[in-house]
Amino acid sequence: MSSTWLTTRAWLLMLPLLAVMIAVIGWPMAETVRLSFTDAKLVGLTGHFVGLDNYAKILSGSNFRGTLSTTAFFAIVSVGIEMVLGVLAALLLNQQFYGRTLLRALMILPWALPTIVNATLWRLIYNPEYGALNAALTQLGLLGEYRSWLGEPGSAMAALILADCWKNFPLVALIALAALQSVPRDLIAASLVDGASALNRFRFVILPYLAGPLMVALVLRTIEAFKVFDIIWVMTRGGPANSTRTLSILVYQEAFSFGRAGSGASLALIVTLMVTLLALAYGALVRKAAGSAA
């Protein structure tokens, strides 16, 4: 059988899948690119070609830049907390103690919940009239009167980050825990005999085995945090006063709330491009980390 026939047959076999992919990914993508160069409205989707006008307006406007920094703030702070918390939890759960298996299983629970459920749960906790947080804090005497945690620009972002960390640190902990199991016992023993302190043991023995997997967790979580939508949409809808409006929320508002399909599409493409660049940069980092640990 000739290799050309093999190649042809391979393509033939893939054709149905390709057709589906073009229909559900390729065509909408192409449409988005086309729309981004028009002033099309959501209704009708017909508009005039306006060239790079949409892009120019978005990139020069303060809306975009403000939202970008809100997004970056959310991503950096919540992912940072998740990484630290996750590693600490993994170190703890890697110790030998009674009930460890149960605790390991319990820790996964927040991450196993659907984001919408988690968000709804935290919205109830933060509720200004009957929320558990208000009740707990006032009963402990730490808070004079009930506050609207999600209703004040000062606290809404912090409340969101807390809810996001609660849900996502278990993923980091899980990855770190798996990595910790790969640290050779002999190496720990050698460092004990060599007289390394706990801190030095972490630095020279544990970290080399943790770095690669943690980098993967960092990549996954940053990209997810950068395009965060659902948890914010359920809890604050980007408010109050746009204080929790991230890029994905902005895209949604532009395209669907204001019906500006053209500039919404441009915005979406800008966000996509940024996430892609982020993924590429991280990919290079991961490959580098993997190379040094081997």
């Binding site: 002999d186 190496l187 023993a189 050698a190 005999v193 060599d194 085995y209």
Partner: peptide, 17 residues
């Protein structure tokens, strides 16, 4: 172990990678 004045060599070498 560090205060016993012993040194140990392991089957797996146990070098810091």
């Amino acid at each position: 172990p560090k205060d016993r004045d012993v040194a140990m060599v392991f089957q797996s070498y146990a070098l810091y990678p």
